[in-house]
């Protein structure tokens, strides 16, 4: 395992908006500080997300990249996909259909 990039999965629940932006970025920062080189944000239980939620994900992506790591999303529902399309940011994120697909690719 030591040779592999450390993977960390962050599971989000409920509504992602401006009010939990700080919490999410703290979690991502901690993961990176623990040496996670690859972070997967699992959105399976996310019910809704607004533009501020997307901006939080972008900040998380930026944090990961500036620490030399990667950040991906998985299990995004149609609503989240639509928000990403509307803002034109779909290409910016690496998206997996579920956690298994991610693990298959990087395990």
């Amino acid at each position: 395992m030591a040779t592999q990039t450390q993977v960390e999965v962050v599971e989000l629940f409920g509504r992602i908006d401006a009010s939990n932006s700080d919490t999410i970025r703290q979690i991502v920062k901690e993961s990176l500080a623990h040496g996670a080189g690859r972070i997967l944000i699992d959105c399976r239980q996310v019910t809704s997300l607004d533009s501020s939620g997307i901006s939080t994900l972008i900040v998380a992506l930026k944090l990961a990249r500036s620490a030399g790591g990667k950040l991906a999303l998985c299990s995004i529902n149609d609503r989240i996909r639509m928000m990403l399309q509307l803002t034109g940011l779909e290409q910016v994120f690496e998206v997996f259909s579920n956690r298994a697909e991610f693990e298959q690719r990087y395990a």
Binding site: A18, D50, S51, S52, I54, S55, I58, L86, T87, G88, L89, Q91, V92
Partner: peptide
């Protein structure tokens, strides 16, 4: 309205990012 400013800002940002 935060949602308006952020959503339009994001859209503009994504085109700059491209």
């Amino acid at each position: 309205r935060r949602e308006a400013v952020v959503s339009v800002g994001l859209r503009n940002f994504s085109s700059l990012l491209a």
